[in-house]
Computed example of a mutant assay.
Amino acid sequence: MEDRLAEMLAPAVEAMGFALWGVEFVRAGKHSTLRVYIDHADGISVDHCAQVSHQVSAILDVEDPIQAEYFLEVSSPGMERPFFSAAQFALYTGEQAAVELTMTQQGKRKFKGVIGAVDGEQIDFIIDGENFSVKHSAIKKAHLIPQFN
């Protein structure tokens, strides 16, 4: 569903001058949440989020792709930005990420590692000096771990 929503919303968000970083739908009965993450080279303000929220809300009202009740949140991906595509990992090669896989692979389900090479949908991580490769489709969720020097 998130991919379909992203395809639906991306043209409007991009027409407003922002990049659609990702979409996630968190199911929780009457308290479900649709999160839309937007990004811009100059950063994201509360006003930007409000403008995009207004536009996205209008599209969702017309298209009505979600049958359940939900809250709409529009925000920046922030410093601990979640990753939604392999291409996003490639933007942060050399940085550390926290990753949770859909299934255990080579004894790992949750790990932290440095993002190595990204080749199509294959993402390499360096964990304790060892290379660990996974397909993007095997990642349940992942986010950047900000480094402060």
Rank of each mutant, 00 (worst) to 15 (best):
P65D: 03
L20Y: 04
R4F: 05
A86N: 02
E7Y: 11
H31A: 14
G116V: 04
A142F: 06
K135D: 15
A6D: 00
E14K: 12
H136P: 02
T33E: 12
F111S: 05
D128P: 09
A50M: 13
Q96Y: 11
P146S: 06
Q147D: 12
L5W: 00
G29Y: 09
E100T: 13
G120H: 09
V118F: 07
G29E: 12
E130M: 11
Q122A: 14
S137M: 12
L60R: 01
F71I: 13
L5R: 02
I44K: 05
G17H: 03
H54P: 06
N149L: 12
Q96T: 15
V36C: 02
E80G: 13
G113H: 08
Y92E: 11
N131V: 13
V118Q: 05
I127M: 08
N131K: 14
G120Q: 07
E2V: 01
A6P: 02
M79P: 05
M1G: 13
T104R: 15
F25T: 02
L91N: 10
T104C: 10
G107I: 07
E2S: 05
F83W: 08
P11M: 08
A10N: 06
A41L: 11
E130S: 14
E130L: 10
K30D: 14
M16F: 07
S75H: 05
T33M: 11
I127V: 15
H136M: 14
V134H: 06
F83D: 03
E69T: 12
V74E: 01
N131T: 14
H136T: 07
S75L: 04
F18A: 02
K108Y: 10
V118H: 04
H54W: 09
G22E: 00
P65W: 03
A15P: 02
W21I: 03
V62E: 14
S32M: 01
W21Q: 04
Q105Y: 11
S137P: 09
S137D: 14
E121N: 11
A19F: 11
G94F: 10
F84Q: 02
H48V: 08
G107H: 05
E2F: 00
H31M: 14
R109P: 03
A41I: 12
D39Q: 06
S53Y: 05
N149A: 15
I115L: 06
G78P: 04
F132Q: 06
S32D: 00
P65H: 04
I38Q: 03
G94Q: 07
R109N: 08
R35M: 08
G113Y: 07
